[in-house]
Simulated assay, not measured.
Amino acid sequence: MLTKTAVTDDQVAAVLAPVGTVRDVEPLAGGLFATVLRVGLADGRDVVVKVTGADTTRLLRYEHGISGTEAAVYRLAHRAGLPVPAVLHVDASRQHVDGDVVVTEHLAGVLWNGADLDDGAARAVRRSLGAVMARLHRITGDRFGYPAPSAGLSRETWPEAFGAMVEAVLADADRWDVPLPHGRLRAAVRAGHEVLAAVTTPRLVHADLWPGNVLLDPADHRLTAFLDAERALWGDPVFELVGADQLGAGAVDPELLAGYRETGGELGLGDGTPGAGDPSAWTRLRLYRAYFACLLVVEVVPRAYTGDWVEGYAATARGNLERMLDELEAP
């Protein structure tokens, strides 16, 4: 089972010495494999300390080096005026803690998945999220794929990068003895080469904008920040829709698409109804959904998930994978 890194108060104090003097330390829930702490400083500030353990033996390939990715993305997004926590300190020295540390400002608010929203407020948040996505995707890079060198999944073109990403998750599946339809998935990627090649500019994609990573103002439920940028990549903006609806397989939320268009972006999916808009955009979305479903199916094993929800979760992800491949293979 993937075990979080134990961190003592003394270790926290040592890591935070360049930032300030520690007053109190409180664990935060939510991280699947990182240790996340809220730390009060003597000067009155609250900060978040996130420790990603040095042991990579139970990580999927794309997860290698994600601590550095998160810090880099926050900095890029912050410079672009996007609502993210400011990075205060990064420590990858392993001198004080057995892992990599990112320290950010602590932002007040309530997570979207913990907020009690009526239909109107929920629609407004989804539209705001679409607007944030469009602004994020204006940030461009010079290579495609996952940026961390240790992942080895950065390439010159999007078809090359996406193909490497697929091969990485298939290798992870073999490593953890998780059956996946290798041949069908590879064939779908080969068949989709032309539509993937139409993506020629690497754009910053958060890839994990589900409600658990979106912060709202508790008073009026406005979107105030997005968090946990560690799985970000350079690629196709359409990929963003998969991270925002990780078990989705059908229509795309029209409010999200409306917010995206209102902010000057266009994803090519029309009103979000399957078949609307550009067929090539839907082909790319199906490829990304198939890839993401593979990640969800495989990660269950190294993370040793437990609970009544696990069987249904894995079955839904596997069903989505089969559905996407069926749709991609349809004449």
Rank of each mutant, 00 (worst) to 15 (best):
M1S: 12
L2M: 15
K4W: 00
D10P: 03
D10A: 15
V12N: 00
A13K: 12
A17N: 07
G20R: 11
V22C: 10
D24I: 06
V25W: 13
A29S: 12
G31R: 09
L32I: 12
L32E: 14
L37I: 13
V39W: 11
G40R: 15
D43F: 13
D55Q: 13
R58K: 11
L59Y: 15
L60A: 13
L60K: 14
L60H: 12
R61Y: 05
Y62N: 03
V73G: 05
R75D: 07
R79S: 08
R79I: 02
G81R: 01
P83H: 02
V84P: 14
A86T: 15
V87F: 03
L88N: 00
V90S: 03
A92Q: 00
S93W: 03
D100H: 11
D100I: 07
V103L: 03
G109Q: 11
W112A: 09
N113I: 10
N113S: 10
A115D: 12
G120I: 06
A121Q: 12
A122G: 11
S128P: 15
G130S: 02
M133E: 13
A134F: 03
L136Y: 03
I139S: 09
T140Y: 01
L153N: 01
E156Q: 13
F162E: 02
G163H: 06
E167A: 10
D172H: 05
D172P: 01
D172V: 09
D174L: 04
R175C: 02
W176S: 09
P181C: 07
H182C: 05
G183V: 14
A198M: 05
T200K: 03
P202W: 09
R203L: 02
L209H: 07
N213T: 07
N213L: 04
V214N: 07
P218S: 10
P218N: 06
L223C: 12
A225P: 14
L227V: 09
L227Q: 11
W234G: 04
G235D: 08
L247P: 15
A251G: 13
A258W: 06
G259N: 09
E262K: 04
E262T: 12
L269R: 04
D271H: 11
R286V: 04
R286H: 13
Y288I: 08
R289T: 14
Y291Q: 13
F292K: 08
L295C: 12
V297E: 09
V298W: 00
V300E: 04
V300N: 05
A304H: 08
W309C: 00
G312F: 10
G312H: 14
A314D: 01
T316S: 05
A317R: 01
M324T: 02
L328Q: 00
L328F: 01
P331H: 04
